[in-house]
Computed example of a mutant assay.
Amino acid sequence: MLAAISPSSNFFHSTIEEEAEADTKPLVFFSRALDLDRPNHHEAAVMAAIPDFLFGLRNSFYLGAYQAAINNSDIPNLPADDALERDVLVHRSYIALGSYQLVINEIDSSAPTALQAVKLLALYLSENKEAAISSLQEWLSDAAVSNNPILRLIAGTIYMYEQEYNEALKHTNSGGTMELHALNVQIFIKMHRSDYAEKQLKIMQQIDEDHTLTQLANAWLDLAMGGSKVQEAYLIFQDFSEKYQMTGTILNGKAVCCMHMNRFDEAESLLLEALNKDAKDAETLANLAVCSLHLGKPSSRYLNYY
């Protein structure tokens, strides 16, 4: 979902109406969206009662607290695998904040495959799209590294941005990590296949129903399905807002739920709070443009940022 399982995605505003169209910053899950250097690390850690030193860092990343993830990344005495995952999350957080060149400069050719994949995402988002896709295809053709979870995640993310959803699923559909499953949910929603998205969500719920990514994926699907499900999505974002630092991701999630429920005044208030956190956040600006149109207010002030 996932840069940030962030991300990355125009899902929020595009599910309301197409009244305000704009390119959005990636929800460097996307998604804004990780246990990516070894499959199901989180659930394995829980089962084996092994301390999960990166839980807080992952959670910050998933929920869009990218600067907090960076600031709290100095964790001593990490095992090698955890140290690599930490570095991946930190660099993806920088990408989510738009610091593409920093990531490109810091990751050299000797870095592990996971970090090389993150660098490709930074290259892609810095408008070096052709070079990034060419390098990505080269890496994916190498049997020795093509199954790396981070590389598959980045491949799925880039092809999702390119709207080549079937190509994205070639690399993500087999899953293996929570974030890959979460990205699959996003891709299927973009393909208007809520039935397949629901199957992916059920897999995530079987692995860890309380995982932050499971809850986020549940909220995305609820919004896509609409109707009474929107209230359930709102409660998920409300729960996040009570448990964790308030972020643009959480505020936008609550605001979109409010817009679906015709509570545009409340949505505007939430979005203005998000704008105070990041005046250039594309998701916030796009949602404010849509909200303003429904409230009969000028939207050009938000569209002019793009």
Rank of each mutant, 00 (worst) to 15 (best):
N166E: 13
D23I: 04
P79T: 06
I104Y: 01
I104P: 01
A83P: 00
P7K: 15
V103F: 09
E266N: 07
P298H: 09
S299R: 12
R263I: 00
I133F: 08
S126C: 01
F29Q: 08
R193W: 00
N262R: 10
D74W: 00
D82C: 00
A49K: 13
Y165I: 01
T247I: 07
P298A: 10
Y161R: 07
E209L: 04
S6F: 12
G248V: 10
E167R: 13
A197Y: 02
A122D: 07
E106T: 14
S110I: 03
L63P: 09
E266T: 10
A3D: 14
V90D: 08
A132P: 00
Y244R: 03
S135R: 14
A279W: 00
C291S: 11
R193K: 11
Q67R: 14
D210V: 02
Q186E: 08
D222S: 12
G156W: 08
G175P: 03
V290N: 13
D142G: 06
A233G: 08
K254N: 05
L235Y: 05
L151S: 05
A155Y: 05
M1L: 11
E138V: 09
E167D: 06
Y244W: 07
L36F: 01
H13D: 08
F237Y: 15
S8E: 15
Y306M: 10
A45S: 14
A69K: 03
H91R: 14
Q245I: 09
Y66M: 09
A219C: 08
A48R: 12
K129I: 02
E198D: 14
D81W: 09
H260L: 03
N148V: 03
N105V: 03
I203E: 09
Q137D: 14
L125Y: 10
D52A: 05
L293D: 12
C291W: 11
I189W: 02
I5A: 14
M178E: 06
G176L: 07
Y234V: 07
P26V: 11
A33Y: 07
E127C: 03
F61Q: 12
A3H: 09
A48L: 14
Y244S: 06
T284I: 06
F55I: 07
L270Y: 13
I187Q: 04
S31W: 01
H294Q: 11
R152A: 04
L201P: 05
L183Q: 11
D35Q: 09
K254E: 11
L2K: 13
A168H: 05
S110G: 12
P39N: 14
N72P: 02
S299C: 06
E268M: 10
I203A: 05
V185N: 04
A45F: 12
N166S: 10
F240R: 03
L221H: 02
L89T: 13
A68E: 12
Q245K: 14
E106Q: 12
I158M: 11
R58V: 04
F240H: 04
C258H: 13
G253R: 10
F53I: 00
P51M: 10
D108A: 04
C257G: 15
L201C: 08
N262E: 12
